[in-house]
């Protein structure tokens, strides 16, 4: 979907991007990082809005310095801010952005309604956008980015300020776009959102790429560390576990952190539970959540 080679960007004395080298395959990709990590700058450079100080990059195999306009015909962008044009209705706004992308009057109008249907803006589309609430604005901005049917969209904090249902709708739209073959670069502070819709992530901090890769590989289940939710006689369970060489690392309120004697020996836990006569409410392999991976990456960077 895009690749960068030694990309650097300096604003006066501030360095926003340091030697970013990436090759990202098409798909739904998360872009994570604390404030000031360089995420927005990276998007801006890839859109050709900001010129990189040093380095090369290409988006959809098009060179960012020479084929800016061709790139912009094939990408969509959902900025973080409101970005509305006061006085326009929802339909008028999406139609207008279609025209800006280079669509004809008829195409633009027809397509505007198509994408507004897609983001489920019903009658509200005929009302001025000033009266929209946060979730509607975000969906309108998504419609605007999709109007010319891009192959790649950049989303900057698209779930910010939305309520749980609104977030869910937005996330399912993003997943659906991924299934329809549109690549997505999703920049977000909400790690659970990224974990839910993205296949891969790029973690940035201080203008550098700290890690990038598949989420499921980053949060692989640990082979021997498990958590057990248990209801019943905990002392009996502990004894049964000890007999089967399962060590209990921590225990609080019926939740036990355990370490199995070896891989694929979960059966020992089940036997222990059965023998203790309690109920097994949960057996979860310990996996590092995206949050832990993220925090670890940031901490490593702070140390160096």
């Amino acid at each position: 979907m895009f690749s960068c080679n030694n990309l650097c960007k300096r604003y006066g004395r501030v360095t926003a991007l340091v030697d970013v080298t990436l090759a990202v395959e098409p798909g739904v990709v998360g872009l994570l990082g604390p404030n000031g990590a360089g995420k927005s700058t990276l998007i801006s450079v890839l859109l050709g809005q900001t010129r990189a100080t040093v380095g090369k990059a290409s988006v959809l195999k098009l060179d960012i310095s020479r084929q800016q306009r061709s790139i912009r015909r094939r990408v969509g962008f959902v900025p973080e801010n409101d970005c509305l044009i006061p006085g326009m209705t929802g339909t008028g706004y999406v139609y207008y952005t279609g025209r800006l992308a280079g669509m004809s009057h008829a195409d633009s109008m027809q397509r505007a309604h198509e994408v507004l249907d897609y983001v489920a803006l019903e009658e509200a589309r005929y009302r001025p956008t000033e009266g929209y609430y946060a979730g509607m604005k975000q969906r309108l901005k998504l419609a605007q980015a999709l109007v010319h049917d891009p192959d790649l969209i950049f989303l900057d904090e698209p779930t910010n300020g939305m309520d749980p249902q609104g977030r869910q709708t937005m996330l399912s739209l993003i997943s659906d776009l991924g299934n329809a073959g549109i690549s997505v670069l999703l920049s977000s502070h909400l790690l659970p959102d990224v974990q839910r819709v993205c296949e891969r992530v790029i973690i940035m901090a201080g203008g550098q790429v700290l890690t990038s890769g598949r989420i499921d590989e980053m949060s692989k289940p640990h082979p021997t560390l498990y958590t057990v939710d248990f209801a019943g006689d905990v002392a009996a369970l502990r004894q049964q576990l000890a007999e089967r060489k399962v060590s209990v690392l921590e225990h609080s309120n019926g939740r036990l952190s355990i370490e199995l004697p070896g891989e694929n020996s979960q059966t020992a836990v089940l036997e222990a539970v059965r023998a203790s006569g309690g109920k097994l409410h949960g057996l979860h392999p310990r996996r590092s959540s995206l949050e832990e991976t993220f925090m670890a990456a940031i901490q490593r960077q702070h140390q160096t």
Binding site: M103, M162, A180, G181
Partner: peptide, 22 residues
């Protein structure tokens, strides 16, 4: 009033029209 009317998601439809050269 909630952010989304329902979790109804239409399938995304691609568009095969041409963009003019602006």
């Amino acid at each position: 009033m909630t952010d989304a009317p329902a979790n109804r998601v239409h399938r995304y439809q691609r568009w095969d029209g041409e963009l003019n050269k602006n």
